[in-house]
């Protein structure tokens, strides 16, 4: 039998990333590679440094030291903080996608759903209203929302729909790397399931690489290929999701896993 051929080039390579606000506050000694199509979960309690790390990765927070190397669609690898700001910001609205925990932070609440989805298209140069509108409508369908709500305002939507709208808004430019901060955070359980399914099918359809911060281990199990467990600014354990959850090695991970009802 033939050995599986692995993708050699990581989409994102994080090397000794550190951003500290105090002793063990923030994140430090972070090292990992993310490969195309992989979903990486970052779990840990509040204050463990998950969000600091995610902010470093999303270009909003320059690390004290270390490198965050992104390999772009044409195969050029570069530290996102070493490129000029114009290019970094362009990447953030084209090849990166950032999904906020609270959809109100990721959406423009005072413009229609269609304009929210279309914005990133217009930001990368689309100037044909008809095309933009068609694409926006298609994406609304993709995230399982009725097309006839294209001209409705985000505040008219439920929380789950707002989150799906945010995902459509981010995915419309076909990003390669999506960063999600507690995407199912404030949602009802039934809505969560729907969203999990949606995220998972989009990930495989679009071959997205995803980094997802969550404190919900059940969500992590269902969506993530790999996990990083953070405690007090450091990654204390990392590995395959089911290995970390079913056979945790570090005392803190064991505590974390044994503390939830259905991991």
């Amino acid at each position: 039998m033939k050995k599986p051929i692995l993708e050699e080039n990581a989409v994102l390579s994080v090397q000794s990333c550190q951003k500290l606000y105090g002793i063990n506050r923030g994140c430090q000694d972070i090292n990992f590679d993310l490969y195309p199509g992989e979903v990486l979960g970052i779990v840990g309690e509040s204050g463990s440094g998950k969000s600091t790390l995610l902010n470093c990765l999303s270009g909003n927070n320059q690390p004290d030291h270390g490198a965050i190397i992104y390999r772009d669609s044409v195969g050029m690898a570069q530290d996102i903080y070493e490129m000029n700001e114009a290019r970094r910001r362009l990447l953030m609205r084209s090849e990166f996608g950032i999904v906020k925990q609270n959809p109100k932070d990721g959406l423009r609440m005072r413009v229609s759903a269609g304009a929210n989805i279309g914005e990133r298209l217009m930001a990368v140069g689309d100037r044909h209203y008809g095309d933009i509108r068609t694409k926006a409508g298609d994406w609304l369908t993709q995230v399982e929302m009725p097309k006839d709500r294209l001209d409705d305002m985000p505040f008219e939507f439920s929380g789950g729909m707002q989150q799906r709208l945010q995902i459509a808004r981010v995915l419309v430019t076909r990003p390669r790397l999506v960063l999600m901060d507690e995407p199912t955070g404030g949602l009802d359980v039934s809505v969560q399931a729907k969203l999990l399914d949606l995220i998972r099918s989009l990930v495989s359809e679009l071959n997205l690489s995803v980094i997802m911060v969550t404190h919900d281990l059940a969500v992590a199990r269902l969506l993530c290929d790999r996990l990083l467990v953070m405690q007090q600014s450091r990654v204390i354990e990392q590995g395959l999701t089911d290995q970390v959850l079913d056979d945790p090695q570090h005392p803190y991970t064991q505590l974390l896993v044994s503390s939830v009802l259905t991991p």
Binding site: A86, R108, V111, A115, E119, R120, A123, Y129, D151
Partner: peptide
């Protein structure tokens, strides 16, 4: 100021889009 500096003007069309949509 940053948007001007970096010529990030895509959002300007959001308003025009809304006009046509409504």
């Amino acid at each position: 100021m940053k948007m001007h500096a970096l010529e990030e003007y895509g959002v300007m069309h959001v308003k025009l889009y809304e006009d046509i949509a409504h």
